[in-house]
Write a protein that binds this DNA or RNA. Sequence first.
DNA 1: CCAGAATGCTACATAGGTGTAGTAAATGGA
DNA 2: TCCATTTACTACACCTATGTAGCATTCTGG
Lengths: 203, 203
Amino acid sequence: MPEQTRKRRPYAPRVPAPERREQLLDAALTIIDRDGYDGVSIDAIAREVGVTRPVVYGAFDGLGPLLTALLDRQQQRALTQLYGALPLDALGSTPVAVVERAIPALHAMILADPVTWRAILRSPANVPDVVRERIEGDRTRVRQTIELMVTAVLAPGADGEVLAHAILAILDHFGQLVLAEPERFTADRLVASARAMIGAGQP
Amino acid sequence: MPEQTRKRRPYAPRVPAPERREQLLDAALTIIDRDGYDGVSIDAIAREVGVTRPVVYGAFDGLGPLLTALLDRQQQRALTQLYGALPLDALGSTPVAVVERAIPALHAMILADPVTWRAILRSPANVPDVVRERIEGDRTRVRQTIELMVTAVLAPGADGEVLAHAILAILDHFGQLVLAEPERFTADRLVASARAMIGAGQP
DNA sequence: CCAGAATGCTACATAGGTGTAGTAAATGGA
DNA sequence: TCCATTTACTACACCTATGTAGCATTCTGG
């Protein structure tokens, strides 16, 4: 009987459940960074870790819960970084001063953890609903924070809502530029342009 | 033999090839608008039209070529609209004047053909390569046009490249706001905010 | 009215993904 | 040492999508 047990797959190293969960989340993040959100699937994650699908199902209830857990893990990190970088104590400061503090801080923040920020900034509209709603919610909250800063710094008559949208759109796009070409888009360069935009004639 | 010909599918209306092609492109656009780019597939398009897949393959060589054809059709329309709305004769004008002309024009343009613009503005990173490259190329060209306008209007020392990125990011996002909530984000409101941003103290 | 061209359908093979039931191996404590 | 637990694997059933070969139907011009 030579063909009896035809090459059983070698066992992957046995790993306790909690550690396996972390490992799977890492794998998911790696895939997102390498192949984009489209590449993420239970199957791809299992392959990335060198394990079979049932192992993944043993650790998470499916792709949605897994990605939610991934967000849970990255979210605190990211938001902490972000709120640390935003000059929340902007009251009484000038717009230019705010920009000159915020942009370099955000620039450094992104380059310090590019994988996380690529996953957030490049997150497309087609991610699983759980993920999209989550990221959208965070964006909204950040935008509202920006709105507070805007109305604190600018004339009270300004349209804080729209300005906050515009600022976040710029920051978002600047972030993507930095991630794509860090050497070309330095903090100084972005600050200079931001300063030019707020109006060179500002006090 | 009662079960001999078990319900053959009723023939869809016969349509000459060129008309069928248009119909399929319309269906693809409808699906993109309704379900996003993820919903688009040969299968979905065939279903949308009420026809079987081989019919689609008879008209196009696959999803890539079909979407390319769709872009071909929408592109001229969109770019014509866009370059008509952009104040290319900006030299000698003030930034505020440029904004006051451009934003209402863009606003009207988007609301006049929301389906096309949703397909462009919401196009995510994960569309088929053909489409992504195409839209990216167009964006780059538009951005370069903006860069020309910027350097024409602003001080020659300004960083045209970064400013063009920022402006396009804002316009892009404003477009999405208008598409999402046209009543809330009127042209006037967006113009006012843009004016505030270029600096209230500008001449 | 009746070919033959044009158009549409069925059916199949292929590929990748989901989720699960049942089984096999490793591990640690009695 | 041996058994129970934990962990991992196999195998299957199912789904959706791609792409194609061959057959069926409709239409049109002679």
